[in-house]
Amino acid sequence: MGWKTLDDMDLAGKRVLTRVDINVPVENGRVSDATRIERIVPTLRDILSRGGKPILIAHFGRPKGKVVLSMSLRVVVPALEAALGRSVRLIETLEGAETLTEEARSADVILLENIRFYPGEEANDPAFAARLAALGDIYCNDAFSAAHRAHASTAGLAAHLPSCAGRLMQAELEALEAALGAPKRPLMAVVGGAKVSSKLDLLGNLVGQVDTLVIGGGMANTFLAAQGLSVGKSLCEHDMAPTAREIMAKAATAGCEIILPADIVVAREFAEGAAHEVLAVHLCPDDAMILDAGPQSVARVAKALDAAKTLIWNGPLGAFEITPFNAATNAAARHAASLSRAGALISVAGGGDTVAALNQAGAAEDFTYISTAGGAFLEWMEGKDLPGVAALKA
């Protein structure tokens, strides 16, 4: 792949500047979900077991180059220590990091204060990157979720130090390479969500790469309307109809089959347990909203999944947040999960609502890989070069 991992590094006695994403939710002064912290533990344990000293670089919120005390990383220290079972010392300033006391050196792990307190971070200022680099001997990037940012700690540092990917970054890159870089075919993608306009680059890239593309959610309504079908009062970007037709034409040229709903679940109100009916896709009443794909559509998606060898999933097939409009997403996700569990399908999913939808369906744990990277995952799927990954290859 062109980038190194921790396996390629001699860590003994080395200070390892490790970029991590521990931008976790906090309630009442305590970390309420430690998932992101737990996911960096393998990297930190590896560095420690091989005699390295992890010096963590992380951001929290968006202080925009100023010290904002409410965005201090101090709040994550107890959760970090609990997850690692090791002592963690927060160093409040770069000056403090440059002149560490003996007491600070005795901590197992050092955590630098919110790197976004410094304007040089988001500006990717070379002088700031050089100052950071002087704090360590090796640079390890374990924050794929920030790899789409060209910041000093995600890209600039790699120009100054021997660099590698951490275990989480490595796992993410290997999963994405398996899904889009050199996939087993047929390659299938499921793309759902509210708006075509927010996923134009994604759809444009995928139709040239995948064999089958399932389009669901509010996005599907725009494609249906572009084909001249009535979608009633459904969420729909009617002004995007020409773009939808362009995407369908590009798919036809590339030999990519697009699967749209064949039947629909409609309701007059968007509410839990709302009265609803299943109709053929061309029969949407003028006063109704399409809120999910119907059972025929799910059967067609399941058949495509049975034929596929690799699946990329981004976004739900309907209004999965409320019953009964979560049925299509749940059924398709569970089918993909069962195929993955049986070893018949490599399944990679990520981005926004996707993780929540797969968790709700009880399907997430059987997917081959679930990315929590959000924006970076989407930009990778769009075919864009990510600065944080490119820097490791340089």
Rank of each mutant, 00 (worst) to 15 (best):
A271Y: 01
A293F: 05
A363L: 00
G294C: 07
E122Q: 13
A293E: 13
G273W: 00
H151N: 13
N23Y: 11
A123P: 01
R74F: 07
M1R: 13
S340Y: 02
L213P: 04
V31T: 06
R50D: 01
A275Q: 14
I247A: 10
E237N: 05
V31N: 07
I110K: 00
E121M: 09
H160W: 12
V20P: 04
V77T: 10
D353F: 08
A158H: 08
P126H: 03
G352H: 12
T18D: 07
A134T: 12
G255Q: 10
E122K: 13
V207C: 04
I258C: 08
I40D: 02
A336E: 05
L56S: 05
L135E: 11
K250M: 13
P186L: 11
P324H: 03
P324G: 05
V210C: 13
L260I: 05
R334F: 04
T154G: 09
D263R: 03
A361V: 06
S106A: 15
P295R: 09
E92M: 04
C140N: 02
R149Y: 10
T329H: 00
E103Q: 13
W380H: 15
F117N: 00
L48S: 10
F270A: 12
Y369W: 11
V207M: 11
P119Y: 08
L386I: 09
A271E: 09
L111T: 10
T323H: 14
A376L: 03
I346P: 00
R86L: 11
L180H: 07
E174Q: 14
A171D: 15
R19Q: 04
A123E: 15
H59M: 11
A82L: 11
G273I: 06
V26N: 03
G2P: 08
